[in-house]
Nucleic acid binder design. Structure first.
Length: 755
DNA sequence: GAGTTTGAAACT
DNA sequence: CAGTTTCAAACTC
């Protein structure tokens, strides 16, 4: 854990080493410019928040985001990391390219991320070795500075990758490192990890113990305690390898020492490691979702990491699946419970693996992964697992971040020790925050309302839901947490809450029951479509949005201008599916509403557009305040539209959008100041989302086979046909359709995998 | 913070 | 399937 003391130490160390030759050397190697005395907390800048989550979720994602930063860190001359093993070897021997160099400068931003998928395996192998050496040597190298710099200047955490390797090099010497890699390569035919080696070569200069300590602490944050930790670590490293990675030093600092020791042990047998993690899949590029999940972040059951990340994830699908396999699908709380227990403790490595990060990020990660791997074999459950309830992309006040960060750090180590799910959850959140992305409102908020407000202000009200249920026991869709597929957490003010890990069985059973009634009950309420996107340029946003509420709203009095309206809340326009009255949804009025409105307007002559515009803007703005997610104006917000797999009902934001484009940080921010032109979220994200959304719809439609008998709860017959029984019938929420969705993802410009 | 409003979810 | 009730969030004061 990184206490303030350590931070201080780091800061001091930074200045200490800035002048050192090593530091200079490193600087020369990297385009990143050093930032003096950058405090870890600085990593919480908006950009960092936006991109960090991805790191956790998946290497791909991180890479994707990193891609944005390629310009800063990439070295054009360097070969691609993805190259075949032979290439790697050559690289190692010949060039000693930095990890950063892994980026292919020429690679489009979106593409860069796709290269990473394969990297993890190799990286993982090496990393363990790196960790293996416990350097307590006081002599530190400037690396810390690098990390800080990266985080601050580029929002990248190149340093993260560098650190481990540097340590390795410094302690062992380049030759050793190479050996390690070779061995790893032998075990894997994967072309990854070379970069790390290369980097080591360059950075073989001694590294200070401080870094080591940082790393060790970082492990804490990540909580990679399982045998597979190395993998998780790998994933982290992988990301960090990319210059563009937003990985912050914060994370690094969190690695626990004992975890490192684990790595050490693991390093011994790369083969085994891969076996466990399905690394081979990575190499082959045919990773299934599960593999992907487990490999990069592989968390052993019971591992701290898993536990921590699991946090509020309700791996309904997983459990359900297990139950099915065990019980034959019976809903009763049967003996399966015992089997479920493990998951509680840390459960499946696959569960909530990616968690600690924001939902959107997770989703992004998923998407990126999917993109990376043409095969989308993910199970819905896994996908959903990725979603973390309380991770927020919002960027809260620096103070908050810092506080949260500290608290996280402080608590991380201690909490790890306990099996308490809650703790684990908290840890996950902490970790997230530590990652500088998450805003842990829990720490700072006293009352649910305040918390909620705060979240909303932060811009991520959706991400961290906290319920206040009193009668539903948090086992009904009334409960936002439950509806979002997450467990209630301490911050919730619910009473008699059963939506907790301890009642996992009950939760699952209830969920299953609800799904049996309405397979889409846990599906995202807002589904983006390929519908024409409204012209933002128009003063009025009357054009149908590219996203629609799953079932449409039924507002009578709110005119779809308040958050009572799910469409409005979701930041989407009303559609024909809505049965609202007097719709004035700022994000898009229901078709036909214009006519009605026109009639109404006759009474109210003046310039409709102007009036409406003002009205809409006001509302939108208001909504923005209340529910920032609705309008992604800032980079952070971009992330916010939680990237949720279309069917991942687990997505925290119950009414989440299926917005794959959150990664569209690219589009971002400038929008924010443009108060004049209010752009519905969908518009903003349309590029990314449209494809996925279409897929989603298709899936929904396509999956809903005539005979499925899926019952749509929607009042409107016109509503999107529910997904096939696969979705709902599968207790775990096995949305078979996801596969299709994922496949579609690759079409995303930025996400297109680079082969 | 308490009370009201609102509309989804649940129930009949 | 429609109507009613329940519920908790959203909102107001």
């Amino acid at each position: 854990m990184m206490d303030t003391p350590e931070k201080t130490q780091i800061s001091s160390s930074l200045s200490k080493f800035e002048d050192s030759p090593v530091f200079n050397y490193i600087n020369s190697l990297s385009p990143i410019k050093p930032v003096k005395s950058v405090h870890v907390t600085q990593t919480f800048n908006p950009l960092s928040f936006a991109s960090l989550p991805s790191i956790f979720t998946s290497p791909h994602v991180s890479s994707h985001k990193e891609s944005r930063f390629l310009k800063c860190s990439t070295d054009p001359s360097k070969p691609e990391l993805l190259s075949a093993d032979g290439t790697k070897a050559s690289r190692i021997e010949e060039t000693g390219v930095d990890v950063q160099e892994n980026f292919d400068p020429g690679v489009p931003l979106g593409e860069a991320s796709f290269e990473l998928p394969n990297e993890p395996s190799s990286i993982a192998i090496e990393l363990p070795q790196t960790l293996k050496y416990d350097c307590g040597s006081p002599g530190c190298d400037p690396t810390p500075c690098i990390i800080e710099m990266n985080c601050v200047s580029q929002s990248t955490c190149t340093s993260l990758a560098i650190v481990p390797f540097i340590q390795e090099a410094s302690q062992k010497g380049l030759s050793d490192v190479v050996d390690v890699q070779e061995s790893s390569e032998k075990g894997l035919s994967d072309g990854m990890g070379v970069a790390a080696t290369l980097q080591i070569e360059r950075k073989r200069e001694t590294i200070g113990s401080e870094w080591e300590s940082l790393i060790l602490e970082t492990s804490d944050l990540l909580i990679f305690s399982s045998p597979n930790d190395s993998e998780a670590f790998r994933g982290v490293i992988q990301k960090s390898l990319d210059p563009g990675a937003t990985f912050c030093s914060t994370l690094i600092s969190q690695f626990p020492q004992h975890d490192i020791s684990d790595y050490k042990d693991q390093t011994e047998g790369i083969g085994g490691l891969f076996e466990d993690n399905n690394v081979t899949n990575f190499a082959s590029g045919s990773l299934t979702m599960e593999n992907r999940m487990s490999a990069p972040y592989s968390i052993e059951p019971g591992s701290n990491l898993h536990r921590g990340f699991r946090r509020r994830c309700l791996d309904f699908e997983m459990l359900a699946a297990r139950r099915k396999s065990l019980d034959g699908g019976s809903n009763t709380n049967s003996s399966v419970d015992n089997k479920l227990e493990p998951s509680k403790a840390g459960g499946d490595s696959s569960r909530c693996i990616v968690p600690g990060i924001g939902l959107h990020l997770n989703a992004l990660a998923i998407v990126s992964r999917d993109n990376n791997n043409s095969k989308l074999e993910t199970s819905s459950s896994e996908t959903q697992k990725l979603i973390l309830p309380c991770t927020t992309t919002s960027n809260p006040p620096a103070a908050d971040h810092e506080t949260a960060h500290e608290s996280i750090l402080a608590s991380a180590s201690t909490e790890r020790e306990t099996d308490d799910v809650e703790n684990g959850i908290q840890l996950a959140e902490d970790a997230s925050q530590a990652s500088a992305y998450l805003v842990n409102e829990e720490f700072n908020q006293n009352s649910p309302k305040k918390k909620r407000r705060r979240l909303e202000q932060a811009g991520e009200s959706e991400a961290c839901k906290r319920c206040n249920c009193k009668k539903s026991k948090c086992l009904k869709l009334y409960c936002e947490c439950f509806a979002a597929g997450v467990y209630c957490i301490e911050p919730c003010s619910c009473q008699d809450c059963f939506n907790k890990p301890i009642h996992e069985d009950t939760v699952l059973a209830t969920r299953k029951q609800i799904e049996s009634r309405n397979p889409l009950a846990f599906a995202p309420k807002v589904i983006r479509t390929s519908d024409p996107i409204p012209e933002v340029g128009d003063d009025l946003i009357t054009t149908p949005a590219s996203a629609r509420h799953k079932r449409g709203c039924n507002c009578k009095k709110s005119n779809c201008l308040k958050k009572y309206c799910e469409c409005f809340q979701g930041g989407v326009g009303c559609s024909i599916n809505c049965r609202c009255e007097g719709c004035k949804n700022a994000f898009g009025r229901k078709e036909g509403s214009d006519i009605l409105e026109a009639e109404e307007e006759e009474t109210d002559p003046p310039n409709n557009n102007a009036t409406n515009k003002n009205f809409e803007e006001t509302n939108i703005l208001n909504n923005e305040e209340q529910n920032p997610a609705a309008l992604p104006t800032t980079p952070l917000q971009l992330c916010r539209p939680l990237v949720q797999l279309p069917f991942s009902s687990k997505g925290k934001p119950p009414r989440s959008f299926i917005s794959i484009g959150s990664s569209s940080a690219l589009y971002t921010g400038h929008r924010y100041g443009q108060s004049n032109i209010i752009r519905p979220p969908n518009i903003i994200e349309k590029h990314f989302q449209s494809v996925a959304e279409d897929e989603t719809l298709e899936i929904l439609r396509g999956n809903s086979s005539p005979g499925t008998g899926i019952k749509t709860s929607s009042p409107n017959s016109k509503r999107i046909s529910p997904p096939q029984s696969e979705f709902g019938s599968t207790p775990g929420g096995g949305w078979s359709g996801r596969k299709l969705i994922l496949q579609s993802i690759p079409s995303f410009p930025s996400l297109t995998p680079k082969h």
